[in-house]
Amino acid sequence: MGATGADIESRIERARILPVVVIEQAADAVPLAKALLAGGLGVAEITFRTAAASEALSRIRDEVPNMLLGAGTVLTQSHLLAAREAGAQFIVTPGFNPAIVEASQSAGLPIVPGINNPTGVEQAMALGLKTVKFFPSEPSGGVPFIKALSGPYPEIRFVPTGGIGPGNLANYLALRAVIACGGSWMVDTKLVRDGRFDEITRLTAEAVALAGSAR
């Protein structure tokens, strides 16, 4: 990440948790963002898994400006353009696509691309990146695998995502190479769909407390 990216990375690292959000209805975006803030998390990754993603990003950017806002599941150039126009401040991808990484860098958007092996780490390093998403974390070997990768690549930092929840969050955050963990348990799609934003705030506060105890 560059200069702006360093600040964004610092904010994600302070949060320790990166909520991975799927929004089906754009009208839920602002209440969801406010619920996260009320629970103590000022960052969110809005995924491009639904048609509402761009509008959700725009609404949060306009109405909850204190939220650090990322766009996730960015798979195409059109996703990247839509995320940029909607006000996303950083990009997250599930895999490593050099074309998307380079386009994001050219657009001035910090990017955290997904990898789950040494080759992916070295591809990221070749493009000047020092922070990557480790995905899918649990199926790919989880904590032991990240420890193994940290041996030959001590300068690389990870945002593990996939299969992480309250039961194993602390194990990941105990690793020096991990800056934050991506997760969706506090923003479960059904909770958002049902408008249970108070429950999202409660779960978020619990997650923040758990992350804090793992420092």
Rank of each mutant, 00 (worst) to 15 (best):
A3S: 14
T4M: 15
T4R: 14
G5C: 04
G5E: 05
I8V: 14
I8W: 02
E9M: 13
R11C: 08
I12F: 07
E13K: 15
A15L: 03
R16P: 10
R16L: 08
L18V: 15
P19Y: 02
P19M: 03
V20Q: 05
V21N: 00
V21R: 01
V21E: 03
V21C: 03
V22M: 13
V22W: 04
I23P: 03
E24G: 14
Q25W: 05
Q25V: 13
A26V: 11
A27Y: 01
A27F: 02
D28E: 12
V30I: 00
P31R: 01
P31T: 02
P31V: 03
P31C: 02
A33N: 09
A33L: 09
A33Y: 08
K34Y: 01
K34D: 13
L36Y: 01
L37W: 04
A38C: 05
G39W: 07
G40V: 09
L41P: 02
L41V: 05
L41D: 01
L41G: 05
G42P: 00
V43R: 06
V43M: 08
V43S: 10
A44H: 03
A44F: 05
E45R: 04
E45V: 05
T47W: 00
T47A: 03
T47I: 04
T47K: 00
F48D: 07
F48G: 06
R49M: 08
R49G: 07
A52K: 04
A53N: 06
S54Y: 00
E55Q: 15
E55T: 15
L57K: 09
L57V: 11
S58F: 06
S58H: 09
S58C: 04
R59F: 09
R59D: 09
R59V: 09
R61H: 09
E63A: 14
V64P: 07
V64H: 03
P65F: 07
P65I: 05
N66C: 07
M67K: 07
M67L: 14
L68R: 01
L68C: 07
L69D: 11
